[in-house]
Design a protein around this nucleic acid. Structure first.
Lengths: 186, 186
DNA sequence: CATGCAGTTCAAAACGGCTTGAACTATATG
DNA sequence: CATATAGTTCAAGCCGTTTTGAACTGCATG
């Protein structure tokens, strides 16, 4: 919602070297990526690097997207860990430069696998424990135990759906891989 | 972080009539439902009603889950709107009672349909606008335009994946429907 | 129509996640 | 080694979301 302010401000204090179209596109990607459960700014950084198609330094990213030094450092670390951004050292320069890998969905899959699945596993464990506690408790009706069991089905179903989702994004959407490849030269 | 105070209090002011096993199970469902993008307490209310298998009044829910009057009112309204909780009037009683519908996934589908799709649609529109702006701008390289187009593919793919997810949760996981049915009697 | 209880609304408070920025460490360079 | 610049860390603050609770509406009842 604040995003609209900039129109009213004639002379921004930060010159905002970003073109308007870049800004719109970068924010849009930020939104998609946030939808997928990541930080908005992770998507924005990736989008900037992808759009520019040049390796930028952290300082440049910081200036273009108006983020803090510390923030950029952390964002880049995440993106690098998920292998959607590459850290490259240019000969003449003392600073690292960062470059977009083209496979953004890689990120989604990686994180869903490492983070979401363990989360669901934990929930399933909790439900199992609840059932054990209920049984130990005595005087818990059989129907109630049955309902607990059915709740476990809910967690299992969630896990199954997640797996299918991943597989889907790999096969159906999989074309994306290639879509993002081979567009380097002008 | 302030939330830790309660540990110091030896005798809880609220006796917490919930059994431990109920508590564990209810919180677990709260977590699943939060994972699906809803409020934790929406899941907890549903879970309480489902576990007890009795229609409870708002006041009872309020006491059992230690929520506020206003909060329960809003949570129940949401759950009712999504048709996962039923409002029933018992003859002798002047207050409404609430009962769990068995199809919790209904909620997920409803909201994804009404909320997430329009969100993605908006993102796609933004990216399209960015491309138009870039073209109008002039001196934007053809490769850059191409990259914008490819970003649109990202949003489209997200939408497609979402649709498949819905279909999946309806068919594959669809067994859940029946799983939650016909367990009413002891 | 006064009383009391069920239910709703919404401004304010609490909460949680993200970002900031200052202090720190690491690394290159003369 | 001294200096400068790049990069990291994390406590504190910011900001959006959720929850609270008091005031309110609606409704049944005497």
């Amino acid at each position: 919602m604040k995003g609209y302010l900039w129109q009213a401000v004639a002379n921004e204090p930060h010159p905002t070297r970003l073109h308007q179209w870049e800004n719109v596109a970068i924010d849009a990607v930020g939104n998609v990526i946030e939808f997928w459960g990541f930080k908005r700014n992770q998507g924005r950084v990736w989008a900037l690097l992808y759009l520019r198609d040049v390796a930028l330094t952290a300082a440049e990213i910081e200036k273009e997207l108006e983020l803090s030094k510390g923030g950029v450092s952390m964002l880049l670390r995440d993106l690098e860990r998920w292998a959607v951004v590459l850290r490259v050292r240019t000969p003449g320069d003392s600073a690292w430069r960062y470059k977009a890998e083209t496979d953004l969905l890689h990120m989604a899959r990686r994180v869903i696998e490492e983070r979401e699945f363990s989360f669901i596993a934990r929930i399933r464990a909790d439900l199992e424990e609840a059932r054990k506690l209920a049984i130990a408790e005595g005087h818990v009706s059989r129907a109630q135990i049955a309902r607990l069991t059915k709740m476990e089905t809910l967690a299992e179903a969630t896990e199954k759906a997640l797996k299918l989702f991943l597989k889907t994004s790999r096969l159906d959407v999989g074309g994306m891989f290639d879509v993002f490849k081979g567009d380097q030269g002008e």
